[in-house]
Design a protein around this nucleic acid. Sequence first.
RNA 1: GCGCCAGUAGCUCAGUUGGAUAGAGCAACGGCCUUCUAAGCCGUCGGCCGGGGGUUCGAAUCCUCCCUGGCGCGCCA
Length: 551
Amino acid sequence: MRAYTHLKATLEQALASLNLPVPDRMTIEPPKDEQFGHLATNAAMMLAKEAGKAPRKIAEDLKAAIENTDPAIARIEVAGPGFLNFFFTDDFWRQTVTDIREQGAAYGRLNLGQGRRVQVEYVSANPTGPLHIGHGRGAAVGDSLARILRAAGWEVSTEYYLNDAGRQMLILGKSIFCRYRQHFGADIELFDDGYKGDYIMDLARDLAAEHGRTLLDMDEDEAVSICREYGMKVILDGIKKDLQDFNVEHQVWFSERSLTEAGKVEDTFESLRNKGMAFDQDGALWFRSTDFKDDKDRVLRKSNGDLTYFASDIAYHDDKYKRGFDLVIDIWGADHHGYIPRMKAAVQALGKEADQLEVILVQLVNLLKGGEQIAMSTRAGKFETLADVVGEVGADSARFIFLSRKSDSKLDFDLDLVKEKSMDNPVYYVQYAYARINSVFRKAGETGVPVPAPGQADLSALDTLEDKLLLRCLEQYPYAVQSAARGFSPHHISFYLRELAGLLHRYYSANKILTAENESVVAARLALIDAVRHVLANGLDLLGVSAPESM
RNA sequence: GCGCCAGUAGCUCAGUUGGAUAGAGCAACGGCCUUCUAAGCCGUCGGCCGGGGGUUCGAAUCCUCCCUGGCGCGCCA
């Protein structure tokens, strides 16, 4: 990132000196092959048409304007159709080590968000059963994205939307009551759409232990209501614990009931009516989402008087924006993708821009065991819970796997592979690099080898191929944060970390550190791996994965 | 039928606001522990980037038409 920032300034100055504009589509990027420089720009090619000159001629002019005026740049080459390839001096790259060691945990922080406020809402599973592995993926993505956006300069708030009103909760109450009656010998069967999981029977049994037979004598609605509240509380406590064990945080737990009870849904209806965006037809209340490119208009209140989910979702998002968020990010299961156009329409009807709502779709997780698929369905009561999986493979492994793929592609999660301590399971590879570095520093402490302070290390000994590769990679870290933040893609961090860890392992194998040829080489290499240690720690923190001192 | 996502090495996947000879890990094969952690390193093998056409100095990336797989199209949640 230093190199980019530096070169951009130099290039703009040179363009100005030649009376050339900065082209809109100018890129400054590291080429795939370092023979084409550390950074290359297409500026000359972009200017050719406008300036009426051959791209190579413009490139030569730029080269002449920059050459020998910028002490950080060692060499410039004009290549191919008109690329300008820049090579920085070794000392320029070495400076990265000092920067990282001075900045520590702050290295890689950016100001992309410029303090704007963003809300990330994730998981938001109905409290009708334990979280399963699919929720786990959404949790990992949401939690990590929040960390990344914070690092990128956004003011982030994280939230769980609790669907504590509505039909699903009623079914939960009825399911528990049914099991409760069975517990006391009633000869009845669970109704068709009731929840079938064993945990419902556990809830009924505990409820019976607490209340005895008293619910049997009550009005059924009242008994179901008690069952519902009891079930919701216990299940919600379980969800909170599962998330905690998964190292996932929600700052705000937002209750759907609080919307309806405060009349916010009605307020939203009123506001939409006033704007002409809601209308009555066939006894129902409709939202005119076709005004905003949705396929069809959508029902808000059914002719039987019930609210649709969509209605409270609009009120909920209205509330989000009224709380002052510039950007709202929702993380949904990919099977809800058809819901996006109407939600975007709603956001616009609320007076916001469509891009102030960002929906991240998380594809389903295929849970496998030894290559064989394990079925999942909350309703059928057959699923692997998140807690089971985390208990079996650990939070770090599970999180790293979830964050190692684009969220919008299906993910095979093989329990047997994830437990393996091999490269099939890259979390160990990255953590091991961190632990290895710490091991060297422990040894340095034991044997009294001094570690130079950040500003005082003489880094000129960092001269091997492995040194250079590591220096380049360290300088790239802020880019990785940038692309993860811009693309809302935590997996960029995972890929970056795997590369950095690989270079560290290679370095470790090829270069002695504590037993290097002389003291100044030892000191320089300690400074370098200290910088690597900081970056590994910072990156792992963005994923919510621990950085172990030893393994 | 319409829409969204995906199709890149034997497998799992990166790379898509157009850049130079398309990458990584795994698997396979061959090497490396008297050495700071071998949970590691080095090397070899491996490709019509689903297919056709188009745009341009340049396409895995953009446009278009097909093929294949997943998902979604309710006054369900």
